[in-house]
Amino acid sequence: MSAGITKEHLEQTLRDKLSADHVEVIDTSGGCGQSYDVVIVSSVFEGKTVLQKHRLVNDAVKTEIAQLHAFSQKTYTPAQWVELSNK
């Protein structure tokens, strides 16, 4: 078993590597640090397909994902995020 990845570490790494405006990390593991849901808002996602966006994220936290059991992501551009928040 891996030691697990902390929520803070994951959040910081995503912020740094994707120059994200907003990162939300939800620990769904019940505290063992092996399962996360993340929401990422960044302008680097502009003009990319969902697959391309997810690949960017996967690449940014490649070593972390390898140690997790579950990793789920939602990716938005700043414009999409604003639209979503207004709903």
Binding site: V50, L51, H54, R55, N58, A66, A70, S72, Q73
Partner: peptide, 24 residues
């Protein structure tokens, strides 16, 4: 070049994992 399972291919093309499938 995808770190997690499940993975879906349609007609030889990689589509994505669970999040992308749900999204689509």
């Amino acid at each position: 070049q995808w770190p997690t399972v499940p993975q879906v291919y349609i007609k030889g093309e990689f589509i994505g994992g669970c999040d992308i499938m749900l999204n689509m």
